[in-house]
Design a binder for these strands. Structure first.
Length: 561
RNA sequence: GCGCCUGUAGCUCAGUCGGAUAGAGCGAAUGCCUUCUAAGCAUUAGGUCGCAGGUUCGAUUCCUGCCAGGCGCACCA
């Protein structure tokens, strides 16, 4: 956010007005360090509004309206209005102060956008944060389903948003490549390759048969193997193929990971031993009934967790612990886990791992829970069962609606809300999808600007005269564009990329309204004016903001549609 | 039983660090292209913000209790 934005100037002026009033003995209370300005819903309430007078009423022991009057008087008498580019100040209702900006002051943000280009909206609120962002982390035993897809879209977008806020982000995919599930996977493949029945609790999807065929084709010698040897051979070959497939699907989806972290590696080079020793030295490990436990109840977990089972094998929780320690020892000062709702029971124990490792579970680690995605088709819910094989995969979804629509639809809802995707609706008619509304606005602007160029109408930084943009639609649009940096910052702070999507939908709508009421290019024989140039420049800035916003979602900004 | 999430327009959902008349899209009705992309815009209809208390100048937003729905509560991974 630019420090000298119009909004900031207003906030500074208000604070100054308060300080002067206080030093003159008109107010007898502590002042806030910052003034918060709202964008009023009702345009008649100006460009910005503050309820500061209501907030101070009690402490100052004065009527809110009296305080508001004191502030306004102070603004007037100390020449603060001009400095802050304010054209009008009004007191309304119980004591709101409504502020209207000079067009020139308000319109300055367009110049800022045109100057900063792709960088407009980027900030430093998360500077210095080294974030490990873990998401998707599917088992390499099958295709990615819709739950994974939600995270693939949201996680990737969150990564972009966090980076835009100045954080250093590393995306990580944790591969669960150890344990019973992997063995079952190998067993299922082996059985399928011999046309034998797949074990009851094995994997039954259609892909298993295909995968088995492919493995046999690539490794003819495998058909001679038996027992555990065969299981392991099929397991590892299938693992490699599935992982490659997942990687490729995610790649096509525009989601890229910096690190693919194999669970197996946690047991190489004595890393788990090291983890255990560390936790032990901090006093949270004990043995009971032949098993090794981590006393997570020291930190609010429901029950203690087994790391090494009484038969000497490692429980999954052993990996969880070592994995967390690994993240921290690789230098990340914030670990974000994105988990499905069916894993929300893990929150307590994972946070407890952090606490047991001597970290602050409220600061060094965050766990985001994504609620379920339901799919409806033909009015019936499709059940998601990976093992049964009746699943909608990421690939299938993309085939049906395309990457842009799939990503956009998944990102525009907050993740703590269960989501219903109507396949019929998404298949049926794409223009019912908000992504097209936004993309259309961008394409429309590009068309206008192409025409402007043809007509020889200059636009851009040097041809922009903010004081000419006084139309209500123009002011609304400019005011909205000025909000973008705050939107990005809050999306990052709250880990909610959907805010960016909702915001650019608003920008698109505002542009469409502006377009309808304010002619950008000259009509017929009219001679081009500075107003045409300024409106074209405003259009250019709008396209920039939409494009920047779509980029944070990983969705394309087409120039033509 | 315990824990997490959710309950806002006919449908799918935003919004809320407590603020002035609760929003969008779809669906319904009616207008707007002899000139920038009508994949758009405007107007109308549609709401006890799950229910009941509490805190407050002010609650859809915060607190408590209910009701309803979803998801979890392994020496499985």
């Amino acid at each position: 956010m630019s420090a000298d934005s119009a909004q900031n100037k207003v906030a500074v002026a208000l604070l100054k007005a308060l300080e002067i009033a206080k030093s003159n003995g008109l107010l007898n209370c502590d002042l806030p360090s910052q003034i918060t300005l709202d964008r009023p819903k009702n345009r008649e309430h100006g460009d910005y509004a503050t309820s500061i007078a209501l907030g101070l009423a009690k402490a100052a022991n004065l009527q809110p309206r009296v305080i508001a009057e004191v502030i306004v008087k102070s603004l007037n008498e100390n020449n603060l209005l001009t400095v802050a580019g304010i054209s009008k100040v009004e007191i309304a209702g119980p004591g709101f102060i409504n502020i209207t900006l000079e067009s020139a002051s308000q319109g300055a943000v367009v110049s800022q956008i045109l100057t900063e280009g792709k960088k407009y909206g980027r900030g430093k609120t998360l500077a210095g944060k080294k974030i490990n962002l873990e998401f998707v982390s599917a088992n390499p035993t099958g295709p990615l389903h819709l739950g994974h897809t939600r995270w693939a879209a949201v996680g990737d977008s969150l990564g972009r948003v966090l980076s835009a806020a100045g954080a250093e982000v590393s995306r990580e995919f944790y591969i669960n490549d150890r344990g019973n599930q992997m063995d079952l996977f190998g067993q299922s493949l082996f059985s399928a390759s011999q046309n034998k029945e797949i074990p009851e609790n094995g994997y039954h999807g259609e892909y298993i048969g295909d995968l088995a065929k492919q493995i046999v084709k690539e490794n003819p010698s495998f058909s001679k193997l038996t027992g555990d040897e065969a299981m392991a051979a099929f397991r590892d070959a299938g693992y490699k193929l599935q992982l490659d497939q997942q990687r490729q699907v995610l790649d096509n989806f525009g989601t890229h990971f910096d690190t693919w972290f194999s669970e197996r590696t946690l047991y190489e080079n004595d890393f788990f031993t090291h983890t255990l020793a560390k936790l032990k030295s901090l006093g949270h490990v004990y043995e009971e009934e032949g098993a090794t436990w981590l006393r997570t109840t020291d930190f609010d977990d429901d029950k203690d967790r087994v790391m090494i089972k009484s038969d000497g094998t490692f429980a999954y929780f052993a990996s969880d612990s070592a994995y967390y320690v690994s993240k921290r020892e690789r230098g990340f000062n914030l670990c974000i886990y994105m988990l499905g709702a069916d894993h929300h029971g893990y929150v307590g124990r994972i946070k407890a791992i952090a606490a047991c490792a001597g970290d602050d579970p409220n600061k060094d680690i965050e766990i985001l829970i994504g609620q379920m995605v339901k799919i409806m088709e033909g009015g019936v819910e499709l059940k998601l069962s990976k093992r049964a094989g009746t699943i909608i995969t990421l690939e299938e979804l993309v085939e049906k609606v395309g990457t842009d629509a799939a990503r956009y639809t998944l990102i525009r809802y907050p993740t703590d809300t269960p989501m219903v995707m109507d396949v019929d609706l998404l298949k049926k008619n794409t223009n019912e999808n908000p992504v097209y509304y936004v993309q259309y606005a961008h394409a429309r602007i590009c068309a206008v600007l192409r025409n402007a160029k043809e007509l020889g109408i200059n636009h851009g930084l040097d041809f922009y005269s903010p004081e000419l943009l006084t139309h209500e639609r123009e002011r609304e649009l400019i005011g909205l564009l000025a909000q973008y940096p705050k939107i990005v910052a809050s999306a990052a702070e709250l880990r909610q990329p959907h805010r960016v999507a909702r915001y650019i939908e608003e920008v698109a709508g505002q542009y469409h309204r502006f377009y309808n009421d304010c002619r950008v290019l000259p009509l017929g024989e009219e001679k081009p004016t500075d107003l045409n140039s300024s409106r074209a420049s405003l259009s250019l800035a709008t396209a920039q903001v939409i494009s920047n916003g779509l980029d944070l979602l990983g969705v394309s900004a087409p120039e033509k549609m």
